[in-house]
Simulated scan of single mutants.
Amino acid sequence: MNVLRVNGNIDKGKLAKELLIPVLGGMVTGMIATRRAKEKYSKLKKPDFSPPSWVFPVVWTGLYASMGLANYRVSMKKKPTATAEALYDIQLGLNFLWSFLFFRWNLRGTAFAEIGLLLGMITLTTYQYYQKDKIAGRLMLPYIAWVAYALKLNYSTWKLNQ
């Protein structure tokens, strides 16, 4: 099975765009939002289940690529929906915003509320994607799992550092 083929076709330009927007957007957002935050973050009390810091960019790169691929698959369908496209854009914007709330502005309680909203938007996006393309919907499942974990991590870090 070739996940890049939709309706028997591969649009390399569209595929590159749909992969690069979340991957590069996440990288740039992360660099800007976490600049000078690494030292502060290292001093925070963290829960026992907190992974080492190197895990985050590795996991997020994979998740951004997966969600970009899911979006590509849905956009290649004969009848893409405005609802699915809007939900994708909203969840991606919320995803980028979270780094600023948590790291740059130290608003961990606000970041917790926002990541809850983000998880809901990802779930709605995943549902819409699954209705259009089963593979696209499945590609979003690791993202849901990771953000659910990040929600717990955000909450625990916030509570440990009040």
Rank of each mutant, 00 (worst) to 15 (best):
Pro80Trp: 05
Glu85His: 06
Gly62Trp: 01
Phe102Pro: 06
Pro80Glu: 06
Leu63Gly: 02
Met76Trp: 03
Ser75Ala: 13
Ser99Thr: 15
Gly93Asn: 08
Asn71Trp: 15
Lys77Arg: 15
Tyr64Glu: 11
Met67Cys: 06
Gly62Asn: 11
Ala65Gly: 08
Met67Tyr: 12
Tyr64Gly: 01
Phe100His: 08
Phe102Gln: 12
Val58Pro: 01
Leu69Pro: 06
Leu101Trp: 05
Ile90Pro: 00
Ala86Glu: 03
Trp60Asn: 00
Trp98Phe: 11
Pro80Leu: 05
Lys77Cys: 09
Trp60Thr: 00
Thr83Pro: 01
Thr83Met: 04
Gln91Ala: 02
Thr61Ile: 04
Arg104Pro: 04
Asn95Tyr: 02
Ala65Glu: 00
Gly62Thr: 10
Trp60Arg: 00
Thr61Val: 09
Gln91Glu: 02
Gly68Cys: 13
Tyr88Glu: 09
Ala84Met: 06
Thr81Lys: 12
Leu94Tyr: 00
Lys79Arg: 14
Lys77Phe: 06
Ile90Trp: 00
Lys77Tyr: 05
Ser99Ala: 14
Ser75Gly: 08
Val58Tyr: 06
Ala82Phe: 03
Lys79Gly: 10
Tyr64Asn: 07
Gly93Cys: 08
Lys78Ser: 08
Met67Lys: 09
Lys77Val: 14
Arg104Thr: 11
Trp60Tyr: 12
Ser66Cys: 14
Ser66Glu: 04
Glu85Pro: 03
Arg73Trp: 13
Leu101Val: 04
Lys79Thr: 10
Val74Glu: 11
Thr83Leu: 07
Ala84Ser: 13
Phe102Trp: 14
Ala70Val: 08
Val74Met: 10
Gln91Lys: 02
Ser75Gln: 14
Met67Asn: 03
Lys78Tyr: 03
Gln91Trp: 01
Val58Asn: 13
Ala84Thr: 03
Asn95Gly: 05
Leu94Asp: 00
Met76Phe: 02
Gln91Val: 01
Ser99Cys: 12
Glu85Gln: 13
Arg104His: 12
Ala70His: 08
Lys77Ile: 14
Arg104Gln: 05
Leu69Phe: 14
Asn95Cys: 06
Ile90Glu: 00
Ala84His: 07
Gly93Ser: 09
Leu101Tyr: 05
Glu85Ala: 14
Lys78Ile: 02
Phe96Trp: 15
Leu101Ile: 06
Tyr64Ala: 03
Ser99Glu: 14
Leu97Val: 08
Phe96Val: 12
Tyr72Gly: 14
Gly62Lys: 05
Phe100Ser: 02
Phe96His: 08
Leu87Ser: 02
Leu69Gly: 10
Met67Phe: 10
Gly68Trp: 01
Leu87Trp: 04
Thr81Tyr: 13
Phe103Ala: 04
Met76Ala: 12
Leu92Pro: 01
Thr81Ala: 09
Tyr64Ser: 02
Thr61Ala: 14
Ser75Asn: 11
Leu101Asn: 06
Lys78Gln: 07
Arg104Phe: 08
Ser75His: 10
Thr83Gln: 05
Ser99Lys: 06
Met76Arg: 11
Tyr88Asn: 05
Gln91Leu: 01
Gly68Met: 10
Lys79Ile: 10
Leu63Phe: 03
Gln91Phe: 00
Ala86Met: 13
Asp89Phe: 10
